[in-house]
Amino acid sequence: MFEARLVQGALLKKVMEAIKELLNEASFDCAHSGILLQAMDNSHVSLVSLNLRREGFDKYRCDRNLVMGMNLSSMSKILKCASNDDIITMKAQDNADTVTFVFESPKQEKISDYEMKLTNLDQDHLGIPETEYSCVIKLPSAEFARICRDLSQFGESIVISCTKEGVKFSAAGDIGTANIKLAQTATVDKEEDAVMVDMQEPVTLTFACKYLNMFTKATPLSPQVCLSMSPDVPLVVEYKIEDIGHIRYYLAPRIGD
């Protein structure tokens, strides 16, 4: 028996918005410790890693490890039926071929359930190597989304260049060039407004706008985003999901541009 009840059901709706453009389908690995999802995007240039810890759920029960292959377009249709203030429960029997989503309104006057067929996914096993990053940049997630959107008008790629002074985002194309520099903030009223750079050595890498823009669909999940870069390894774009976990996107740098 698997059952996970999330009082802040809106978080699950936001998670779905953050992954559904990148992935058509994915396996949710449910274990005693929580729910894990790892999958390459449809074109195998980026990887999504989602971690929801059991402690973040109001109620969590997982008697046996369970792999639930879900069609994300179907799951998204179902989650659209939940209101933002609904409590969402996911449940499945051991070895079941369906998963049930139950939506409870806050005052319990409306309870809906939706059963969805699971799919058998033949997914490759992925390993995420432990990496020390040369640069770790924290910035407001809305600012990062804005930068990706603005620079996408200039070209297909964004160059991210990190030095101890700050971080520079650049793009170039037919209409011209664009540079956005963010300095480390000295003092801020709110921590979520801060730009922080932790740099061991300067790094400059180029990434596809298309994917960075898809990652920014996670912006509603967190006020801050963390970018980790090292030469010759994928960029990590991480959004914390309150006290429950995180979503990380890994993106290959452009090679041979």
Binding site: H44, V45, L47, G127, P129, A252, P253, I255
Partner: peptide
């Protein structure tokens, strides 16, 4: 593409 190959090597052979 080279990027696909890069990701395959990085994540499939940790």
């Amino acid at each position: 593409s080279k990027e696909q190959q890069f990701m395959k090597v990085y994540f499939y052979n940790p």
